[in-house]
Design a protein around this nucleic acid. Sequence first.
DNA 1: CTGAAAGCGCTTACAG
DNA 2: CTGAAAGCGCTTACAG
Lengths: 341, 341
Amino acid sequence: MSVSVVSVAERAGVSVSTVSRALRGIPGIAESTRKRVQDAAEELGYVASPSASRLATGRTRTIAVVVPLLSKWFFAEVIAAAGRVLSREGYDVLLTELSTPALRAEFFASPRLHGRSDGALVVALQLAPEEFAALEAQGQAVALVGSERTGASSVQVEDRAGGLAATRHLVNLGHERIAFIGIQELPGSPLGGVPPAERLLGYRDALAGAGLPPDPELELGVENTVDDGVAAMASLLTRADPPTAVVAASDELAFGALSTLRGAGLDVPRDVSIVGYDNHELARAVGLTTIDHGVADQGRLAAEALVATLAGQPAAVGRLEPRLVVRGTTAPPRRLRAGSS
Amino acid sequence: MSVSVVSVAERAGVSVSTVSRALRGIPGIAESTRKRVQDAAEELGYVASPSASRLATGRTRTIAVVVPLLSKWFFAEVIAAAGRVLSREGYDVLLTELSTPALRAEFFASPRLHGRSDGALVVALQLAPEEFAALEAQGQAVALVGSERTGASSVQVEDRAGGLAATRHLVNLGHERIAFIGIQELPGSPLGGVPPAERLLGYRDALAGAGLPPDPELELGVENTVDDGVAAMASLLTRADPPTAVVAASDELAFGALSTLRGAGLDVPRDVSIVGYDNHELARAVGLTTIDHGVADQGRLAAEALVATLAGQPAAVGRLEPRLVVRGTTAPPRRLRAGSS
DNA sequence: CTGAAAGCGCTTACAG
DNA sequence: CTGAAAGCGCTTACAG
């Protein structure tokens, strides 16, 4: 509070304008002067007041990171990766969690970011046009993870290709009855935001490509939680003709499904194969075959795009290729291994 | 940018001082005036510039949340709970992740919070005296999760009681060879911060209380990751006289241990029992017996304490009682069930 | 290369 | 109950 530009200026024997310019590395300052100012600042332990420079420049050097939910691995991972980029680039990270419809509505109804951040990094939320407009009206540059909009930077995953790869892997192993546990947004749920349709479409593509008839009975849509994965798998097991393999639209759903299968005394992958989607932190330990969609990359790329935008570059659109990671939860169906075990 | 107090003042036909007071609900303003000002502000879509009021008041109404790592369930959960409180109380959340020793050193060496936040909520980091002093020198009120220090608010868990409860549960089931997979901070690791000693002491207490001799061979210390849990359990299995039960100092270690046991063809809990520590989001699906230490509560209470401190209340120290959650990974040892299965 | 001065948009004693 | 004015601590044309 005590040490301001004025004290530094006095100590260095220059004007405050010179202090300001010297400390920010602005060209057109004699090196000797700059040195003197820097020394004075150091000796006094001076650090510019962020509020004052924000007020003077109109820029906050802050990015708001907006997520539906914090305590999910996917979001935490995206934020962490984005945060590292932002902090390296000298931006503060303002964290905003919109975990209920009420919070979301309130957030977009009032100009909560106005003057607080220069840009918003919106993760997973599928913004309504008014919501997007509200951000722009608050002077925010916008970068999107998991959605797309003209005029904004975005990072998306080729989820249809991911769904295809997951399913094709099972098809190639010889499976013919393959279920899909998809993500269905319940009204008011903060969990998702993932465009579920794409992964499902990829699943259907793979079946069609293999000449396998689609079976609506095998397509489930639930909330993206472990518990719903448990329930979905339980429901599949009650079918007259249960699937021999399952594609889950997230690893958490897959974890739940695995838990149900074990509880039912079934062996994975001998009795049932499972492919997840995420390459969750725990997928390796569980030995889950899954789709890696570069979660950290999504955060990193979006942050980089946003920083570039604020530096005057045009908006950038990135698309990530998902990648199949084969581990231990997939194998040929029993039928093809008769007598072999 | 365009709409400032001045425009509101003009529209309402009052002075800027009156606008400022009316909008902030300060008493001593005629209700009719306040109404007129509020209407004018609303019509103009006015919202006060945070930078300007921060500069004028010297308070930022921002809390810095400082964590070693974001993408771990524990930290994300704590942040989420704290964030909800802070945001409800009108505070912005400035997120800071110190995921490497270099970042940590840099953070505490420069006054990075100065003028950016009114307080710091420090999670899990065991602050050195200079680090704590650095925060105070930057004018930060401090609240600690998982550590303690005179003059600061803090929330801690009775981890010794937790370790005791976990181990006693196994003792009560009849186990006599019980291993402990503890958390050992590697130099430079950002994962921990959890004071590992406490949980270990509780484990020893329980053994002593049951008259079981301590066996250093059964006390392991590893990094708090699933992979290290995998390795630790593997190492235990190679012992000449392997344990019949394991207490893991975190659920992630327990997940790793479970994975090893399954991979080795052993049944849990028939062959080996396991107790974790955290009540991690996935513990329920896995059916893991564990210790619930109110992770969200830790974040919530620390945030409440910090807010109270900033409102002039004295620092508060909270201690949480951990609670055993019995699920499916614990049972009596084989020995006691001879012929029963 | 450097300085004097205005301005960013608030808040808050002080006076009335 | 309300207003005029100073002040918070920077940055940035403008002049020299």
